[in-house]
Write a protein that binds this DNA or RNA. Sequence first.
DNA 1: GGATAAATCTACCGATGGTAATTTAATGGG
DNA 2: CCCATTAAATTACCATCGGTAGATTTATCC
Lengths: 215, 215
Amino acid sequence: MSRHAPSSGAAPRRPGRPAGRTAADGAIADREVLLAAAEMLIRAKGPDVSLQAIAAEAGVTKPSLYRGVGDRDALVMALAERLAARMSESLSRLVAEAPAPRQGLRNLVAGYLQLAARERHLYLFVTAGGAREDRVRQSLRLADGAAGQFAEPIAAYRAAQGADAEVATVWSYGLLGALHFVTLWWLREPTGDMERVIEQISELLWSGLGLEKGL
Amino acid sequence: MSRHAPSSGAAPRRPGRPAGRTAADGAIADREVLLAAAEMLIRAKGPDVSLQAIAAEAGVTKPSLYRGVGDRDALVMALAERLAARMSESLSRLVAEAPAPRQGLRNLVAGYLQLAARERHLYLFVTAGGAREDRVRQSLRLADGAAGQFAEPIAAYRAAQGADAEVATVWSYGLLGALHFVTLWWLREPTGDMERVIEQISELLWSGLGLEKGL
DNA sequence: GGATAAATCTACCGATGGTAATTTAATGGG
DNA sequence: CCCATTAAATTACCATCGGTAGATTTATCC
């Protein structure tokens, strides 16, 4: 192992207040360092890393990790917010640079799938977090962050059309749920080409089932 | 004695092979008993029950539970299959008795939401199962069971229309994902009336976003 | 320079999933 | 009829994990 990080070995760091750290000078900076280390380790080792391993990766021990970011739920929450922010930025840019709304949706779907695939471990870590917390919250952590971003333009459009803008919240969760499940399915069975999947789910979200009969 | 809940006390049941049990006579029946006890306890105590508690509820101990149903993943899987079967049956009936396809979709959505709400604990147990298994599989357990049921009529309809029937799989996961997230959101925040939510998500799934601009 | 506060680590706890070793009863051969 | 073997269940245990209390060292302040 290259162990480009403090991992474990090195200086066992005897207990006690560290030299050169004044009262509340690094508390916030530490948090970023800890979260970055967590992301790094999750990318490397997968979504089932222990808090001890994360702390070690950051060069500290569990209690310090707790002081920095809180319990495991807080950690997953923080990483979910980070990832949601990155996704929101990336996706909204993709949508904005599309020539037409339909293309915007397609770009959104494509960006979502590709980003999730690229950040596979992190995506799974934040969407299927630990099991001892509230399970609803657990499953919606990432969605909660993104739903607000989705709801705004939907509500604006509906209002402009004179239609019921109340659909925005439900539609946001519905869209994210569809994206999420298709993403999971794709992560598990990345068969065929992704382009086709992107086109297919885009078509569903854009035009709906529109069944005339059957089902 | 009815003792529908051996829970803990009662006869501590000394070790050893039980009296009156021949070789492979009750192995399969036992499995059903164990699963029923698990369902019962999950309904009563929520989705975070331990294997020890489930075993105790069934009147046995952990190793017997293992012999009967396997490890925790196998347990969640088995209960997911049971629930998926119940939902499929119930939902397909609701769809079948609808006068028109659009009403069928609405009935489907309504049935899904209501069943999940009624079986809240069980639903959460099978959709947000333990954290030590494969996370993709974990999140899709229930969906995997239902996706097949959804795919068939979708494919049939598309084929009848001369359209690409390959969408069936992706659309199934997309639909289930949308239903799942809206369900979770509703379970967490059951505000307003459910009828409105049902109508809203049905509209999205039937007609799509159909945005002319924005997002 | 000594008391107090802060920051960190070591050591531990309780619970959990999972397994090994043990105990009891049925089964089958002599 | 008795004993070895096998099946089925329990008890006892292990490893790991999340989380916390207590010990330990350094900075800060009077």
